[in-house]
Write a protein that binds this DNA or RNA. Structure first.
Lengths: 340, 340
DNA sequence: GAAAATAACGGGAACGTTACCAACATCTTC
DNA sequence: GAAGATGTTGGTAACGTTCCCGTTATTTTC
């Protein structure tokens, strides 16, 4: 049926060993090489990857598993992953768990036996001990992306949530703000926990008091941000700046703030976490911390490659720093402008 | 190294043929079956996909090539594709052309020789005759997704751009509008051409005159929409409604409109094409046509499956209808409200 | 209970490649 | 020009499956 290495050998007047050697970059005489080349183009030959993978027990494929591929940032992560993978002649298999109700363990066995050379799990959630054990015993190189904890034996790449929010506190403090409210995320999200940590750390580093009423929990949604702002206004403590632990609640909070007549940034400075057109095009544009998703993807692949090439390579935890995207939603404190 | 079918046979006290028969759903005695099953679980055996693919020359993989995976709607398309693929025990290989400067032809040869059983090209651009010929001669089942033209021999799935915009004209006409402006997209985008067609068709179906000044070209961006609106206001024809051929220019136009003091929808009704949080959370929310991306992905896979299962299957062109997402940006015409 | 039919199994070739290793050709060196 | 070094080649065994087909075990039928 399809043309094989043997057809090439026959046409080039040599043996399949020599053709194979040519294909894999071994030593062949110039003349032989050129007649093989000729045969390959004239027969439009492409090596059969499955035969190659079978004999080499190597696939040049990495598997990438997402929680739910529909969030905008997954696109960026994928881009980063793909870019580096392709540079290294690797191909990516992407999966979204949301559409196939398989557990990570299912993926481990799905990928077992030669499907992929390694896996990136890009799922932003907590893992239990069993799941970690499954990964560790699978024998496959694995990198966790956007995951919180540092598990011995498993590499992982994440953004430095704590540092990011802490910098944000410094930034607002530098503008003169001392009463900085905080919209906290759901506690089952590890990222939310780290961000709250960053807020508290930032406050203490700036020698600012932590005023209990100024921390309000919210689900990470526009509506969540709106109602969180309502409870913030309902409590007695005043504030001149507001840090939102997520973009959607930032947008909601900003809108709710404006709806009750508070001006941004004259009355309240507001910052978000995560970036999207929503914050970019809000009026005013909302200052936010941008997660370097593409770079996170790139780093994850690089680390995975290292682990694939050398199974003894030491696993690493890599934290990338979020970048401050300055827009018009923050201003220096004017003493008369406190609200609350 | 890894456990093979032979290890299972040995442990189960039978032959590899029988184990293989068991694995592929053939007839085996109950007792044999259970001892094989036992051996499989105790040795944690998983079949080697590469060996299987080699001998069957079938991969259970479909390749999916995107132009640039960073647009939000690709996530939806991927979701749709993945969902149906997984149901059929297929696995997807996703690629983004943006990061690997390979042509579609490169992908055809990359995927040749057993990488995949079929390909979906989800690239929203025009193809030249050579590219079409390459696809046709590749021998691989191919489905074009979001592509404009109907090429003999190649299946394709797209949204019905023309019908969508035409319905939009009817909708606005139904609200009493007769002077409906149009923000046209870049002519190298086939979708933009179809949408303009739809606008013109809609006008003529509603027996409305096409007023030359009311059609303005714009790149599909927020800034583009803003400046297009400026030129619309600079020309003499008045309008009470505005159709934007894309979400970004809709957002920009709406913002520019409000910036010059025109109220939405009291002074001007405005609609977009494509949907995203940007339009959803704009103030007021902007009515738009939502492309059923997930369904497009699903249909593409179904069609591809059909073409894989039966290479003689007749290629099909499938057009899905965009859905009107009604928000607060449109209102019935009040006679005194003309602007322009 | 022998013949025929059926059920279950096992041997071995094939899939298309790589990789080892022995063989052969060509070139140096003295 | 023989001995060694170097460069190039081809034969063959693997890789882990599936699938065909002949063989053996079991059941049915008269």
């Amino acid at each position: 049926m399809a043309t094989t290495i043997i057809d090439i050998a026959r046409l080039a007047g040599t043996s399949k060993s020599t053709v194979s050697r040519f294909l894999t970059g071994g030593i062949v005489k110039k003349e032989t090489a050129s007649s093989i080349e000729e045969a390959i183009t004239s027969l439009r030959y492409t090596p059969n990857v499955n035969a190659r993978r079978l004999v080499q027990s190597k696939t040049q494929v990495i598997g990438v598993v997402f929680d739910d591929i529909s969030m905008y940032y997954y696109a960026e992560i994928m881009q980063g992953i793909q870019q580096v993978a392709n540079q290294s002649q690797y191909v990516c298999n992407f999966f979204s768990r949301a559409n196939c109700n398989r557990s990570e363990a299912d993926f481990l066995s799905l990928f077992a036996q030669g499907q992929v050379d390694g896996i990136i799990f890009a799922t932003f959630r907590q893992r239990n001990a069993q799941e970690i054990a499954d990964i560790a015993t699978s024998g496959l190189p694995v990198v966790l992306l956007g995951s919180p904890a540092n598990h011995p034996g498993i590499s992982h790449v994440d953004v430095d949530n704590r540092l990011g929010i802490s910098e944000l506190v410094h930034y607002l403090h530098g503008l003169g703000h001392e009463r900085i409210a905080y919209l906290n995320g759901p506690e089952e999200m590890p990222a939310a926990v780290s961000r709250l940590d960053g807020y508290l750390q930032g406050l203490s580093a700036c020698k600012l008091p932590c005023l209990g009423g100024l921390v309000v929990d919210t689900p990470w949604s526009v509506i969540g941000g709106e109602s969180a702002l309502a409870s913030l206004l309902a409590q007695p403590e005043s504030f001149t700046a507001l840090i939102c632990s997520n973009e959607f609640c930032a947008f909601g909070a900003a809108r709710a703030l404006q709806a009750v007549g508070r001006r941004i940034p004259q009355d309240v400075s507001i910052v978000g976490f995560d970036d999207s057109p929503l914050l970019q095009y809000a009026t005013p544009g909302i200052t936010t911390l941008r997660q370097p998703f593409a770079q996170m993807g790139q780093m994850a692949v690089k680390q995975l490659m290292a682990n694939i090439q050398d199974p003894q390579a030491i696993p690493a935890s890599i934290y990338l720093q979020p970048q401050l995207m300055q827009r018009a939603s923050c201003a220096p404190l004017v003493v008369s402008s406190q609200v609350g």
